[in-house]
Amino acid sequence: MTLAINPALREALSDWLERLGALDAASAHTLRAYSTDVSDFLVFLATHLGGAPGPGALASITQADMRAFLAHERARGVSARTLARRLSAVKSFARWLAERDGLDLTVILSARAPRYRRSLPRALSPDAARAVVEQIGQTSRADWIGARDVAVAVLLYGCGLRISEALGLTGADLPLQDSLRIRGKGGKERIVPLLPAARQAVERYVELAPWPIADDRAAPIFRGARGGPLNPRLVARAMEQVRHGLGLPASATPHALRHSFATHLLAAGGDLRAIQKLLGHASLSTTQVYTSVDTARLMEIYQKAHPRA
């Protein structure tokens, strides 16, 4: 694949990814995805144009070329949602390259991604969410594993953490205080209040775990059966078992617990901007879509957060 990319652009792509990792604290997963997305775009251009374009040649890309790329992606089965993500990566790279080399890449930057309907997990009812937290550890083959699954579920529903954020906690976060410093997407940090129930659940797991977690400041708190980092698929499997037992729909996933956290706070009259900070969203619009509450209630909360002068 790299042979079809102009050497100067391949070097530029490497420099861009290195910058994202060093300055923007992008995760390894994000860097791999960006690398694939941009590389595929450049390989397409090499085939489409009959030769691998260099950085300067990107300024000659036409709207027809960009439409051809989008059509090519859709023809090979790429969903509208994935294509929008891939185009976003291409634009980010083009924006950086334009600033670095003084290029006019307006055509690439103005390309429009296909519209797609954002699908979000449905929130559980408060009773169902509490039942999940109470029962998720009851089918485990060992007490410490049951305590582990309960602790993770409480962090998702009680603190609104992403599964990656919960599993990213390390011994450095112990002993637990009244809040957690969470490093979220893009390396952005936020402070999340830690409910007493969440602190107690984590402390019980740490006490039962067969490893001295509190003594290992660099290792993750949550471990698998063999002592390695807990795989998020195991959390999803535990969630699947408990939802079958409770008769809940397939939408009752670990991420749905975080979604329920936000939705229930909003329904109780929580401030939209405060919830935005708790979730770690960069923009208020993301929180509006994510919580998926009815329009009338959302506007009421929004107007309280932004009173007219």
Rank of each mutant, 00 (worst) to 15 (best):
T2M: 07
T2D: 10
L3G: 01
L3N: 07
L13D: 14
L17W: 11
G21N: 03
A22N: 12
L23T: 04
A33P: 02
F44G: 05
L49Y: 04
G51I: 05
M66S: 08
R67H: 14
E73N: 13
V78Y: 12
S79Q: 14
L83A: 15
V90A: 12
S92Y: 07
F93C: 14
G102K: 04
S110R: 12
R112E: 08
P121S: 07
Q135A: 10
Q135K: 03
I136A: 09
Q138P: 00
I145C: 00
A151H: 01
V154D: 06
L156C: 10
C159D: 00
G160S: 12
G171L: 00
A172H: 08
S179W: 01
K185D: 08
K188P: 02
E189K: 05
E189P: 00
Q200G: 05
D215R: 05
D216G: 02
A218T: 07
A225D: 10
N231K: 09
N231E: 01
V235K: 08
M239L: 14
R243M: 13
L246K: 07
P254F: 04
A256K: 07
F261N: 00
A262V: 08
A267H: 11
D271S: 05
A274S: 06
L278G: 02
K304N: 14
A305P: 07
R308W: 00
A309Q: 10
